[in-house]
Amino acid sequence: MSQRKTIDARGAFCPGPLMEVIAALKLIEIGDEVEVWSTDQGTVKDLPIWVDKVGHKLIETNECDGYWSLVVEKTK
């Protein structure tokens, strides 16, 4: 059963949601997931690009009430 860690990065300007995701992925096991909540629309664009480059897996992208929720699975 995979674990999911949630980062509430809403309103986080620095280091920013993607940097938080990268840091969080270092602390979880392969197969586990990181969910990030972000109010920065740039995250919706940047995170999938980075996930694709590194080879992790984007599981979900959801627009919520004033923020986005993205879920990444660690694959390596």
Binding site: C14, P15, G16, L18, M19, D46, I49, W50
Partner: peptide, 9 residues
């Protein structure tokens, strides 16, 4: 690490 030169846009 990310797609620009600093976390702060």
């Amino acid at each position: 690490p990310i797609g620009r030169l600093h976390g702060l846009e």
